[in-house]
């Protein structure tokens, strides 16, 4: 499986959430209209596709920002 960088993952997350506005590491998840149960399953699916593992819903719920989401997989990213 090809490793991806943090920047590439940020772009993947934006595509996954089908969000038109820009997102940054600091973007707060709860403030995005798109952050709903559909977003949860889209992120679960994205991480499964990219990193071949299934993240728990509790971990997603604990995440406050985009950066927190990325930290969940930081050890799997291309440094």
């Amino acid at each position: 499986m090809k490793k991806i960088t943090k920047k590439e993952l940020l772009e993947e997350i934006k595509l996954t959430l089908q969000r038109e506005e820009e997102i940054s590491l600091d973007t707060e998840l709860e403030k995005m209209d798109e952050w709903d149960s559909l977003a949860y399953i889209s992120i679960i699916s994205l991480y499964d596709r990219l990193f071949d593992f299934i993240i728990t819903i509790d971990k997603l719920k604990e995440s406050k920002t985009i950066d927190d989401l990325i930290k969940l997989v930081s050890n799997k990213l291309d440094k």
Binding site: S37, Y40, I41, I44, S45, D48, I54, T56, I57, L60
Partner: peptide
């Protein structure tokens, strides 16, 4: 729904 999704996959 999210739990069902996780369970299924």
């Amino acid at each position: 729904g999210a739990e069902v999704f996780n369970f299924s996959i």
